[in-house]
Design a protein around this nucleic acid. Sequence first.
RNA 1: CUACAAACCCGAACUAUCGCUCCGUACUUGUAUGGUGAGGAAAGUCUGGACAGCAAAGGGCAACCCACCGGUGAACAGCCGGAUGUUUCAGUAACAUGAAAUAAUAGAUAGUGCCACAGAAAAUAACUGCCGGCAACGGCGAUGGUGAAAACGUGGGGUAAAAGCCCACGAUGCUUUGCAGUAAUGCAUUGCAUGGGUAAACCUUGGGUGCUGUAAUGCCACGUAUAGUACCGUUUUAAGAGCGGCCCGUUCAAGGUACAGGGUAGGCAGCAACAUUGUGUAAGUAAUUGCACAGGCAGAUAAAUGAUAGUUUAGAAACAGAAUCCGGCUUACGAGGUUUGUAGUACA
RNA 2: CGGGAUGUAGCGCAGCCCGGUAGCGCACACGUCUGGGGGGCGUGGGGUCGCAAGUUCAAAUCUUGUCAUCCCGA
Length: 135
Amino acid sequence: MAKMFSYSKAEKLKSRKLMDQLFREGKTFSIFPLKVFYMQPTAILDFPVKAGVGVSSRNFKKAIHRNRVKRIMREAYRTEKNVLHDYLNLHQKQVVVFMLYIDKILPEYETIKTVMPVVLQRLVKKLNETAAANT
RNA sequence: CUACAAACCCGAACUAUCGCUCCGUACUUGUAUGGUGAGGAAAGUCUGGACAGCAAAGGGCAACCCACCGGUGAACAGCCGGAUGUUUCAGUAACAUGAAAUAAUAGAUAGUGCCACAGAAAAUAACUGCCGGCAACGGCGAUGGUGAAAACGUGGGGUAAAAGCCCACGAUGCUUUGCAGUAAUGCAUUGCAUGGGUAAACCUUGGGUGCUGUAAUGCCACGUAUAGUACCGUUUUAAGAGCGGCCCGUUCAAGGUACAGGGUAGGCAGCAACAUUGUGUAAGUAAUUGCACAGGCAGAUAAAUGAUAGUUUAGAAACAGAAUCCGGCUUACGAGGUUUGUAGUACA
RNA sequence: CGGGAUGUAGCGCAGCCCGGUAGCGCACACGUCUGGGGGGCGUGGGGUCGCAAGUUCAAAUCUUGUCAUCCCGA
């Protein structure tokens, strides 16, 4: 694990192929105002976590507003992601995550910042459950 | 001074911590370090180009666009200057005249169409009517008061009754000549004519446009089914294709079309240095152009500018985020400033 | 990045090409038939024609600009 709070190019979900697979086969859960897609890929990734954020252009028509939402989400993920990273380091797992903002009003940074740890803890819990079920 | 409207300028700066894109350097090859990083509209996509491809970017029709004159520029439907109209305001007894706005602006004397209601009649001059005549008929377009618009206007002469039929003054269109102007056009002048409006109705005239767009296009790598079904065609009179529609011409042509299915969705170039930006100066009424000096100023591909705290300022808020690149147009916009106009108040 | 369609009464739509009166269905109000409801019949109200400017005597209609919504292609 590199730096504590970084969110560099290698950690971003970029492959179109992987993304199609995620939306087709991945599992989901929602904690308002976020909806999370996640799955554990079979292939070996160059980075343990591949994470992406998104907003519907139907809900936000202006590009400036979409950029604003994505920036807030990236910032929140960057500061709160240690929970997920520690878990994955401990169990030698890898995961692909995509977080979609589903509300229609422009969010404040504080609200996303309070929701993000809850989301990541839920994600860790879900991964734990599937691991338990498999064994 | 205050309020409102319009045009133009400007579109915060700095420090610390964490973090992001791209570029350079170092080495232990993923870390350190240095630099770099959105707009006046990046927007709308309304336009003009650059650049690239498309059989030889063939010809005609259709379609679409433009339309006073000159300049500007790579180009334009843009911009600048001018001419002539129209509208509004000021002004006048009424003109004249001045200011502002303006998609005005080839042709209504090429042709076709349309003009509600009212009105005799909305473009053929009919009806009513007036005059002459016994009548047949002939002459006339003044009479009719409706309408947005009624057969050049006003006054006089003239006549059986009338009429640009004639005269004076004036209006409009075409035209001759002279002067001014690069020109549009203006002023004066010669002759002829006068049946409305609409071309942002069809249209005619003149000029222009080939089409598609950086997901263009070129190259590299990886991978699948030497694979299925149906139809059309193959030595000719050829199926079909060659990038919008139709016709012609021309070139290629042994495969083509549809359905179902399988694979890939990675990389490099295009791609960031020029119709470039800033300042000064010269030419020009201006748009704009020349010269000198200085600068290097985003380059991603699920897509980079954020978060927190503090300082400065009266305040930090508006509209809003590059995706091939430039010129213009249009629209959105906070606070402050400048200029102009309108209204009110106070003082001299 | 490119192409197209639609804005008319509370709702769904005509009218626009070829300019002059804005209409249809449902809904609404009143009256009537019925003991009452439902339903039928009759009468009536309600529209800045998305917004702005222009052409015209006259604009929902023609022209230009603009705003919003929806759809399509790569």
